[in-house]
C-alpha cells in the first residue's frame, strides 16, 4: 500500500513534497525572493557571483566537515588548519624558496597531516573528537603565528590564481566549490569510505561488528577534512593574495552551521553534500543580503544566529511530524 503511493508520487513532480523534503532549499528560495524584492541590486549577475565567491570558502570547509559530522564526529580545527595550510603554501615559496607548485603541495600536505593527527587522537588515542580537534584548533593557529611571525605573507601566483577570475568574469573559487561539491557527493554516495561514514555515524558498534575498520576509516575521514580545510585556506588566501595569521578565525563554526542547516544530524549517520552546499549558500546569501540592506554588522550576527536556530528547529519539527 505504501509502495504504490510512493510510486504514484514519483510519476509527477510534486513541488510541495520536494520542498518539504528539502527544508534548507525552501528557505534559500524564500530568502532569495525576499532579498530580490527588498534590494534591487541583489539579483545582478555581479552580485550573485560575489555571493558564490563568498560562499566558496565556507562551503569547501563545510564539505570536509560533512564527512566528519556524518560519521558522528566533529572537527573544530578546520578554520585554524585552513590558515596554517595557506600560510605554509605561502611560506614555502616566499621564505624557503620552493617552486610554487611544490609550495602549494606543502600547504595541502599540511592540512592532511593536521587531519591525520586529529584522526590518530580520535581513533587510536580514543580522545573525544571535540577535545582532539579543539586542541588542534589551538596548535594550528599557534603554528600559523610562529611561521608567519605574526605578519601576513604574500601568496605565490599559483595560489593567487585560485582567488582570481577566469577571463575577468568567472571566479575560480566558484568553480573550485562546484568541483568539491561533486567530489563530496561522490565520496559520500559511491565510495567505501563514504558508506562507512554513514554506518559509523549511525552505529559505530554495528559498523565494527560488520567488519568495517572503524579506526582506519576515522583516519581517512579526518584527513579528508584536513585536506578540504587546506583547499579552503588556499581559496581565502588567493582572494586576498596574502596568507594572514588570523585568517579564517571562527570559520569552523560557519562550516558546522552550514552542515547542520543542510539537514545533517550532529549525532551522526545523516547528511548530504547537496544539503551542506545549500547551507553554505544560505549563510552567504544572508550575509550579502544584509549588507545590501545596510544592516549593521552587529545585528547581522544576531540574525544569523536566529536563522541557524530556526533552520534546525524547522527540520526537527518536520521530522517529528512524520
Amino acid at each position: 500500500m505504501t509502495s504504490t503511493t510512493t510510486t504514484a508520487r514519483r510519476g509527477g513532480f510534486d513541488l510541495r513534497r520536494f520542498l518539504s523534503d528539502n527544508g534548507a532549499l525552501a528557505g534559500l528560495v524564500v530568502l532569495v525572493i525576499a532579498l530580490s524584492v527588498l534590494a534591487p541590486t541583489f539579483l545582478s549577475t555581479q552580485n550573485l557571483l560575489n555571493v558564490g565567491v563568498q560562499a566558496a570558502v565556507v562551503a569547501v570547509l563545510a564539505f570536509g566537515s560533512t564527512f566528519v559530522i556524518v560519521s558522528g564526529g566533529i572537527d573544530l580545527s578546520v578554520g585554524s588548519v585552513a590558515a596554517l595550510s595557506a600560510m605554509m603554501g605561502a611560506w614555502g615559496a616566499s621564505k624557503a624558496g620552493l617552486p610554487e607548485v611544490v609550495s602549494l603541495g606543502l600547504g595541502l600536505l599540511t592540512g592532511v597531516a593536521a587531519g591525520l593527527v586529529n584522526g590518530l587522537l580520535v581513533s587510536f588515542g580514543r580522545l573525544p573528537a571535540f577535545i582532539a580537534t579543539l586542541a588542534m584548533l589551538s596548535v594550528a593557529r599557534g603554528l600559523t603565528l610562529v611561521v608567519s611571525q605574526g605578519t601576513p605573507l604574500a601568496t605565490p601566483d599559483v595560489i593567487s590564481f585560485l582567488g582570481s577570475d577566469l577571463g575577468d568574469y568567472l571566479p575560480v573559487p566558484l568553480l573550485v566549490m562546484l568541483v568539491f561539491l561533486g567530489i563530496t557527493a561522490l565520496v559520500l554516495g559511491r565510495t567505501y569510505s563514504g558508506r562507512a561514514m554513514y554506518a559509523i555515524g549511525g552505529n559505530e558498534e554495528a559498523a565494527r561488528l560488520s567488519g568495517i575498520d572503524v579506526r582506519r576509516q576515522k583516519l581517512v575521514i579526518y584527513a579528508l577534512s584536513g585536506l578540504f580545510a587546506a583547499v579552503a585556506g588556499m581559496l581565502l588566501a588567493g582572494r586576498l593574495s596574502s596568507a594572514g595569521p588570523q585568517a579564517a578565525t571562527g570559520y569552523e563554526l560557519d562550516a558546522i552551521a552550514a552542515v547542520v542547516i543542510g539537514g545533517a544530524s550532529l549525532s551522526g549517520g545523516v547528511g548530504r553534500a547537496s544539503g551542506t552546499f545549500i547551507g553554505a549558500l544560505v549563510l552567504a546569501v544572508l550575509r550579502n543580503g544584509l549588507n545590501q540592506l545596510q544592516v549593521s554588522p552587529f545585528w547581522q550576527q544576531v540574525v544569523i544566529g536566529v536563522v541557524i536556530a530556526l533552520a534546525v528547529l524547522l527540520d526537527t519539527l518536520r521530522r517529528r511530524g512524520r
Binding site: 554506518a199 549511525g202 552505529n203 561488528l209 560488520s210 549517520g269 545523516v270
Partner: peptide, 17 residues
C-alpha cells in the same frame, strides 16, 4: 545497539557486511 544502523535504510544495512 550492535546489529543494525538504525538511521540507515534496509538496503544499506543488508549491504554492510
Amino acid at each position: 545497539g550492535q546489529g543494525l544502523v538504525l538511521s540507515s535504510s534496509v538496503g544499506e544495512n543488508l549491504g554492510l557486511v
